[in-house]
């Protein structure tokens, strides 16, 4: 679009290159079962699931200002729904995963109505309370193994695919598909009217409010959307693990601490941040995982340092330096040189 000698574009050259590279990478990743080893495939699958969790948490905290330390509520809920729906309702696992997302959205509505009464930081702890309520409640359900949990029956596992290889491939593709879906949804959401409203809220809640944007409804929509998608990811995580227990399903360390570190280090409030963060996280884990608790302390310290010294993370640093934007959300205005009357 050219207006009075200015060009308005969304796509940047870098974004076009990134889209090309992205398409090639995606094709390579889809073909991974044929070129990657079993262990690598597992690792990649896990990476996609963490990437999804990170992108979703980032949508909430980085864009909607909803800092949750209780997203494990929906990871665990999704996992348990997969087990419950396949074991007691006879759902095919893939159908159960989709249904888990729907149920996650449903249950998040009353939850949001409650915890949205808490402001700012207290909202964060409120989300944790909810996760604890979920954990303690599922620990009371003896049909699902109570506090010690249960394994997915062999029959259900077999219903996914007959061979072990087939199951591994399918669960890999499901994880990849989920990550693509999540990033796409987040991207499209942020480009939508509601998404633009979100950015307005982030930049100035007072001003956005006076412009008549219904802040509460927009945040509510984000909360429910992330709950649904997080539940789906949770179901996929426990489809890979084949075993669930309340402590594993609702672990604050595994499903929230790591995710927060990924986003903070990668760059909060950017779509690229969680991707970079996940790559850094897995690279660090490969090299430092033997250190166990020290690894976690290092992660915590790095996250604190990033938050204080470079609040927009590694990606923010790169972007400021090179003016890159791989997932353009806004429009850019540039001077066009051809002189029109």
């Amino acid at each position: 679009m050219i207006v009075n000698g200015y060009t308005v574009t969304r796509a940047t050259p870098a974004a076009r290159v990134a889209a090309m590279l992205g398409a090639i990478t995606l094709a390579l990743l889809v073909a991974a079962p044929w070129w990657a080893g079993r262990a690598d495939l597992r690792q990649l699958g896990e990476l996609f699931l963490y990437l999804s969790l990170a992108s979703l948490w980032n949508l909430m905290a980085g864009y909607a200002g909803l800092v949750s330390v209780g997203q494990q509520a929906y990871v665990g809920f999704g996992g348990y729904m997969l087990f419950a729906l396949t074991m007691f309702a006879g759902f095919q696992p893939v159908v159960a995963i989709a249904a888990a997302g729907l149920l996650g959205a449903l249950i998040s509505v009353p939850v949001a109505a409650l915890i949205f009464r808490l402001r700012g930081a207290y909202f964060a702890i409120g989300t944790w309370v909810i996760a604890e309520v979920f954990r303690l409640s599922f620990a009371q359900v003896s049909a699902l193994g109570g506090g010690s949990g249960s394994s997915l029956p062999v029959g259900i596992v077999k219903s996914l695919a007959a061979s072990r290889q087939g199951r591994e491939w399918l669960s890999y593709w499901l994880a990849l598909g989920a990550a693509v879906l999540v990033i796409l949804v987040v991207h499209l959401f942020l480009r939508s009217r509601r998404g633009l409203a979100l950015t307005a809220i982030r930049d100035n809640e007072l001003a956005a409010g006076s412009l008549g944007i219904d802040i509460w409804r927009t945040k509510f929509a984000v909360y429910v959307l992330t709950a649904a998608l997080t539940s789906i990811i949770g179901a996929l995580i426990f489809l890979q693990k084949l075993r669930i227990s309340p402590d594993a399903a609702f672990s604050v360390n595994d499903w929230t601490a790591f995710v927060i570190f990924i986003v903070v280090i990668g760059g909060i409030g950017t779509i690229e941040g969680p991707i970079i963060g996940t790559l850094i996280f897995f690279a660090l884990r490969e090299t430092l995982a033997d250190l166990g608790t020290i690894y976690l302390m290092v992660l915590g310290a790095v996250a604190i340092l990033v938050m204080l010294k470079a609040p927009r993370g590694v990606w923010g640093f790169i972007r400021d330096r090179y003016d890159l934007n791989l997932f353009p959300l806004g429009y850019r205005v540039s001077r066009t040189d051809n002189k029109e009357p």
Binding site: G65, G120, A121, A257, I260, V264, T293, L296, A301, L308
Partner: peptide, 22 residues
């Protein structure tokens, strides 16, 4: 901004917990 205090104390929590574990 509410993010820095929340995330810094969250990081501190993880450091403390694992430091005690160590």
């Amino acid at each position: 901004d509410i993010l820095p205090p929340l995330l810094v104390t969250f990081g501190l929590s993880v450091i403390l917990q694992n430091g005690l574990l160590e």
